[in-house]
Design a protein around this nucleic acid. Structure first.
Length: 114
DNA sequence: CTCTTGACTGAGG
DNA sequence: GCCTCAGCCAAGA
């Protein structure tokens, strides 16, 4: 279990940082992994401060594979370029082969996270 | 304590 | 298949 000493945001950061290279996930997936499947919005909200951290927020998109948060990356196509740099094809803010690059933390990670 | 906001999701038209 | 409405939940003022 996660120690409540860490805020909801901190938990999101940890999971996001564990996203493998060239892979992406959805807010709901992270929220579900944290046991807060209803708090998907909170995940994105938390990412707001993750930009300045070691959290690859660009690997986190909504359930449609759309780069909804690209706006928060400076208002440019930075987020898209970052994903393409990792081998993720992105067209018009939308991830191609989303099912292939999709990565579910609850499915690949364990309950333990350092 | 109450109200507002938000990088979401699912259901309905 | 696209658009709109409502629900959920945590943090900040």
């Amino acid at each position: 279990m996660q120690p409540e000493t860490l805020n909801f945001f901190e938990r999101v950061y940890k999971v996001a940082m564990q996203i493998p290279f060239g892979r992406v996930t959805s807010y709901g997936a992270i929220a579900n992994y944290l046991g807060a499947s209803r708090s998907a919005r909170m995940v994105g909200y938390a990412m707001n401060g993750s930009v300045n951290k070691d959290v690859p927020a660009h690997r986190v998109v909504n359930r449609k594979g759309l780069l909804t948060g690209k706006q928060h990356f400076g208002g440019t196509n930075l987020m898209q370029q970052l994903l393409e740099s990792e081998g993720v094809q992105v067209v018009d803010h939308q991830i191609q082969n989303f099912e292939k690059v999709y990565w579910d933390p609850a499915k690949h990670l364990d309950t333990e996270q350092t």
